[in-house]
């Protein structure tokens, strides 16, 4: 059984009349810390400890890697990514920038789009001339479309990611050969 907001309220009304400033409660499923603050109010800090249970039949549903016996959940590494980043693409730093080229980097982690909308021509292609304020890509982060500008005047030398691929923050998206 997990704690509800009402449970927390009940515990607080008990605590309010007692000379305690802090309560720490831990079970196998959760931990709760309640603290009295200087203004007389309370704070709560909860940690849900129970591990997720895979639904017995679910492992076959998505046709993805089956979990033997519906047992342990893989991962837990806490990598904040919605899915695997395909190899080679979108790694920050991404090695040295080739001579004479400037990298256009992802301002935020997100999905790289080459065109303003599906089916539309791409913002730029290899060989396109760009100005510093030319929009060369969109990075979609948290459902928001963020325009990415070239940042320099020059020519697009190489586009490093395919359309709709995930990019990490700071990942090189394309190389631009800067005009002398």
């Amino acid at each position: 059984m997990d704690l509800t907001g009402d449970d927390v309220q009940d515990i607080l009304s008990l605590l309010d009349g007692l000379p305690f400033g802090e309560l720490h409660l831990q079970t196998a499923r959760f931990s709760l810390t309640l603290r009295r603050t200087a203004d007389g109010g309370w704070t709560q800090e909860t940690q849900i400890r129970s591990e997720p249970t895979i639904a017995p039949a679910a492992a076959t549903v998505a046709g993805e890697a089956t979990v033997p016996g519906g047992g342990a959940v893989p991962g837990g590494g806490g990598v904040p990514e919605g899915g695997a980043v395909p190899g080679g693409g979108g790694v920050p730093g991404g090695g040295a920038v080739p001579d004479g080229l400037r990298a256009v980097r992802a301002p935020l982690p997100g999905t790289f789009y080459r065109a303003p909308m599906p089916g539309a021509p791409p913002f730029v292609d290899t060989g396109s001339s760009v100005e510093p304020d030319t929009v060369v890509a969109i990075i979609e982060t948290m459902k928001l479309m963020n325009s990415v500008c070239a940042g320099v005047r020059g020519t697009v030398a190489e586009i490093l990611l395919a359309d709709a691929q995930p990019a990490e923050q700071g990942a090189a998206l394309m190389w631009i050969r800067e005009d002398p």
Partner: peptide, 22 residues
């Protein structure tokens, strides 16, 4: 649950989780 959400708080609170891909 999709992707890394299988370790998230909602997954821990539900009675069971069903991975549905991406």
């Amino acid at each position: 649950v999709a992707g890394a959400d299988r370790d998230a708080v909602p997954a821990r609170l539900a009675d069971a989780v069903a991975p549905i891909g991406a």
